[in-house]
């Protein structure tokens, strides 16, 4: 049971991922497909965030003995722990009296990925707007029909 719950978030991620992909391929409305794409991408963000979790790890914020946030980065010993469940490795780290942090790197990575996702969505929406202006519809069936006529008339040039 504990296994099931410890990987609970991965289950959610898989469901979201499949859901998103299904919408992308099944929907015939341009906006709905973009929604599906966003859901799909978001599931990946969750996946990365889950990766960074180290069991028993604190949030990766540097504090000194007085509980204040440190600003002098160079002086503080940063101990990075790989995102592995290797308990022995974690214990060995305790011996050097390091604080166990969750891995911050995936979080930083995913910030980049979120920005990329936003940009993609923005371009996708902009394209949809233009398609609406040109074709008067965002339903793929309508657009396909118009394109088909366009081809027949040989107005491709």
């Amino acid at each position: 049971m504990t296994d099931l719950f410890s990987s609970f978030n991965y289950g959610v991620i898989i469901i979201l991922m499949m859901l998103g992909l299904y919408v992308v391929f099944a929907a015939r409305n341009l906006i709905k497909r973009l929604v599906g794409l966003s859901v799909f991408q978001t599931s990946v963000f969750l996946f990365y965030i889950s990766l960074g979790k180290v069991s028993g790890g604190q949030p990766p914020i540097l504090v000194d003995s007085r509980g204040l946030e440190k600003t002098d980065h160079a002086a503080s010993p940063i101990v990075q722990v790989a995102a592995s469940d290797d308990i022995a490795a974690i214990h060995s780290l305790h011996h050097v009296e390091a604080v166990l942090y969750s891995n911050p790197l995936p979080h930083v990575l995913i910030l980049t990925a979120i920005v990329v996702g936003v940009a993609t969505l923005a371009i996708g929406l902009a394209l949809t707007v233009r398609i609406r202006e040109v074709y008067g519809s965002i339903e793929e069936d309508v657009i396909d029909r118009l394109d088909y006529q366009y081809n027949l008339e040989g107005a491709g040039e």
Binding site: L37, I123, G124, L127, I131, D147, Y150
Partner: peptide, 18 residues
């Protein structure tokens, strides 16, 4: 030049992002 470019770009965007 060719209005179908919009649709092509959209399809490329969806598949490329996937």
């Amino acid at each position: 030049r060719d209005r179908r470019a919009l649709r092509a770009a959209y399809d490329y965007l969806i598949l490329g992002s996937i």
